[in-house]
Amino acid sequence: MTVQELAGRLGWELLAGEGGCGREVDGCYVGDLLSWVMSRAQAGNVWLTVMGNINAIAVASLTDSACIVLTESAALDAEARARADQQEIPVYTTGKNSYETALAVAEALG
């Protein structure tokens, strides 16, 4: 399933990084401590977090995450938005919390 298909199914709203939406999704990771995430998230993961700063974009890029989903409507700052567009890393927002979102991802990915 692609990032775009998953996002459409789960009702996430795209904030930035549209160029990367055709990417295939492989699994999911949840976390907010960037060093921790960096050492554990795997390529292709949907990454659920509340960290919407430019460093989160760097971590998504370095780990080759498929996309970032900002849960509980956490904010994406302007610099992060620009970097996500430039690096084509999709960033979505949802009002649901990380637990609910992870459950929905698990169900959608089967």
Binding site: D32, L33, L34, S35, W36, M38, S39, M51, N53, N55, A56
Partner: peptide, 14 residues
Amino acid sequence: LGFGAGMGLPNIKK
């Protein structure tokens, strides 16, 4: 900002 977890050097070593 999401740093300062005391993981930097351990991650580098790892």
